[in-house]
Design a protein around this nucleic acid. Structure first.
Lengths: 218, 218
DNA sequence: CGTGACATCACGGATTTCCGCTATTTTCAT
DNA sequence: ATGAAAATAGCGGAAATCCGTGATGTCACG
């Protein structure tokens, strides 16, 4: 008698201690097999190119490549792969974007051991699994038609302006810094707000941080 | 022969899966004993009032009570306790503030299992332990004497105002919403900026998100 | 060659934030 | 109970934002 095949799980997180911890948890479940980990989206793509796996536990807020982008690329190269987002971000826009990208599960980091294992098994069986709160969020219809789906990507210049705004520079200071007119800075500022669907500076900065825009690497 | 006493460790983190993972790791070390966990600073204080422990692994960016505040209060009530910060925040100001507050260790979440255990043992032995990168940061002198040391936590009302600001409400709207004067809202706004050490709304929102303030719990 | 996205600039005015200064009342911990 | 912190409030003015409306030139793409 051969033992039943175990579910092969890969963990992707930029925090090693989280990987070690979850690995230790997974190894307590006989039907699961930890088969590797990666500290970045790029490393995950590399690893999956060389190794077979059934499930990827994917942290979303990582530097360099976002979890969303990583998810898209992973599923592009491995259509049958089960991607489970494991993150503390509970923003509806991100959740919807991940599901549209093909993630089969979305767990918040306040889940416990049991639910984690349950989710892995369900996704491996071809079903999907979402945290309670995630499900609640999905139930209420998309009130704002924008969000991350129609990712209104900012232009290079707009990202630059946004960066300077978040460094607490005023329009005048930015204009002097970039050798352009204050009016131009104002235009960019308004375009940024329009693209992000916000009403003022506070919303602009909040959304910028939520979506991990302009994240400069180490 | 009685076995040697084990080091009693408490984990404080707002993410259950992180607690479960680290607990699983600790249980693999014979000389360590997981003896409880808490999901918030307040819960940690409560737990430590009822139970004896040697080491507290303390996540820093938690809602409600900050890790820094929690650390201060823990050491105030349990002077011999070994507090080890375990966080992804590598801002020099926060590191210095924690050490001033009496933390005996500061680990970044990219440490692995071995270093975690080493740190716990060293701190239990009365020494201190810092991640490599933390040590590097401490070597270079404090350039700006402000920032998180005088990290004055925001009052409840201030957090509330901050929350509404980040929801893109103007002072006037906030005033109407809370049935107070616009002048009062303005006062709060200025106090918040002063406490956070920023110059305008953009900086306020950025710092608020960086420090994970106002994260409303489940 | 048109179309659209991007970057640039202008101007006036409405609204809002930012600042200094002060001051009263409430709340809370020692 | 006493002091500290918090919450409340006012006022005038400077500065910055937000907004409507419009315009010009570039550059890529089909």
């Amino acid at each position: 008698m051969t033992p039943p095949p175990r579910i092969r799980v890969v963990i992707v997180d930029d925090h090693q201690i989280v990987i070690d911890g979850i690995r230790s948890l997974l190894e307590q479940a006989a039907q699961l097999e930890f088969c590797g980990s990666a500290n970045s989206g790029a490393a995950a793509l590399q690893f999956l190119a060389d190794h077979h796996a059934d499930i990827v536990l994917l942290d979303l807020n990582m530097p360099e490549m976002s979890g969303l982008e990583t998810c898209k690329r992973l599923l592009q190269q491995h259509p049958g792969l089960g991607v489970i987002a494991l993150t503390m971000l509970d923003e509806p826009a991100m959740i919807r974007a991940m599901i549209e990208a093909g993630a089969a599960g979305y767990l918040l980091k306040n889940v416990g051991y049991e639910e984690l294992v349950t989710a892995i098994e369900r996704v491996f069986a071809g079903k999907s699994h979402y945290s309670k709160r995630v499900g609640d969020i999905l139930l209420q219809p998309a009130d704002n038609p924008d969000t991350a789906r129609n990712a209104p990507s900012l232009s290079r210049r707009e990202l630059q302006i946004l960066d300077l705004i978040m460094q607490e520079m005023t329009n005048i200071e930015i204009a002097e810094h970039l050798f352009i007119s204050v009016n131009t800075v104002d235009s960019h500022r308004r375009n940024i707000m329009s693209k992000l669907g916000v009403k003022n500076t506070a919303g602009m900065v909040r959304v910028a941080m939520e979506r991990g825009l302009l994240e400069r690497p180490d």
